[in-house]
Amino acid sequence: MKSRYYLLLAVLLSLAPPRARAQRVLLRENVAADTIRPTFGPNRAYFSHVYFGYGLVAGRSSREGAELRYGSSAEVQLGLRNKWRLNQRLALGLDGRYARPVYHLAQTSTKVLPDPVLHRREYLALPQLQSEALLRLSYGRRGNAIGRYVDVVGWGGWVLGSVHHTEDSPAAGSRKIQTAQRGLAYVNRWSYGTGLRLGSGRYALAGRYRLSNVFRPAYQARYPELPRWLLGLELSWL
């Protein structure tokens, strides 16, 4: 009689819905407490991002003979910036970039750079590989975001190449005449300077001052030094 009772009870339990069956907890975890704190992010221990910059050459040449066409004379930059946070306010940074400054020469009667010959269009291009170190002061509330900041920077670069480009009125049977002289002997191979950057999120205003001379010592008496200031904008890919 008892065996029949136990058999009936076993059948009833097997037919019961899953929620009605007793379950034993084998493992209990708190996932939030076990997660490793992330270290990569805009306002975390380490962050890196790509940026694009465009700046206009500003200021004057050291003397007459190397006047520029302002608005056309500019520098384009594309780089990768790395940042290490020291605390909530201070951070250090290091970046590498490609920069291409171009100086469009005004065609005036006093021109001596690189010679007095006048052209319809003339410029010097000095593409460079540059590196920049920065000290960043952040301010305001921002959470895990870049926020608002001020960078004090020092930079240096190696001139990859140098080009003197001219364009003249067309001769018979042609639309225009262009010349390009490369590997200019009078251009320095190294450049360096300092600067300041004021940013908010992905946008920044940047000002840079070149301490080095464009021309080698042997040519500095012959050629006026080009303007040293560069003022522009940066757009970061965050």
Rank of each mutant, 00 (worst) to 15 (best):
R121D: 14
V152A: 15
A171T: 12
P116F: 09
L124K: 03
L124I: 10
R141M: 07
S138D: 05
Y139P: 04
R100N: 14
A125W: 04
A172I: 13
G154V: 12
L129Y: 06
L124P: 00
L129D: 06
I146G: 00
Y103Q: 03
L113M: 11
V163P: 01
E167G: 13
S109V: 12
A180Y: 04
P127C: 07
L126A: 08
R148E: 06
S169A: 13
H104E: 14
K111M: 11
L160N: 11
A106P: 02
W158C: 09
P127R: 02
S131Q: 12
L129V: 15
G154A: 15
V159Q: 11
Y186E: 13
A185W: 07
E167Y: 00
V117Y: 10
A171V: 12
G147V: 05
R142Q: 10
A145H: 08
G140R: 03
G156M: 08
R182G: 06
Q107K: 07
E132T: 11
L118F: 00
P170L: 08
P170S: 06
V102T: 14
G157Q: 03
G143W: 04
G157S: 06
G147N: 07
W155M: 01
I177G: 00
V150T: 04
S162F: 06
I177L: 11
G173L: 02
R100E: 10
G143F: 02
K111F: 07
R136P: 01
L129S: 05
S162Q: 07
S162N: 06
A133H: 04
A180H: 03
R121M: 09
L113G: 00
D168L: 05
V102K: 14
R142T: 07
S162D: 04
S174T: 14
L184R: 01
K176N: 11
H165A: 11
V112H: 00
A145F: 04
A185G: 10
Y103G: 01
V153E: 07
K176L: 14
Q178T: 14
L137E: 09
E122R: 14
Y149R: 00
R100Q: 14
G154C: 05
V117R: 12
P114Y: 05
D168R: 08
Q128W: 03
T179F: 08
S138P: 08
V117P: 03
N144V: 00
Y139R: 06
Y139A: 13
L184K: 00
R136M: 09
V112A: 07
A180Q: 13
A171H: 11
L113P: 02
H165P: 02
Y123S: 08
L160A: 13
T110D: 15
E122H: 13
S138H: 15
E167N: 12
A133Y: 10
R120G: 13
Q130E: 15
G157T: 01
A145D: 10
V102Q: 15
H165V: 09
R100I: 03
L118V: 05
S162P: 02
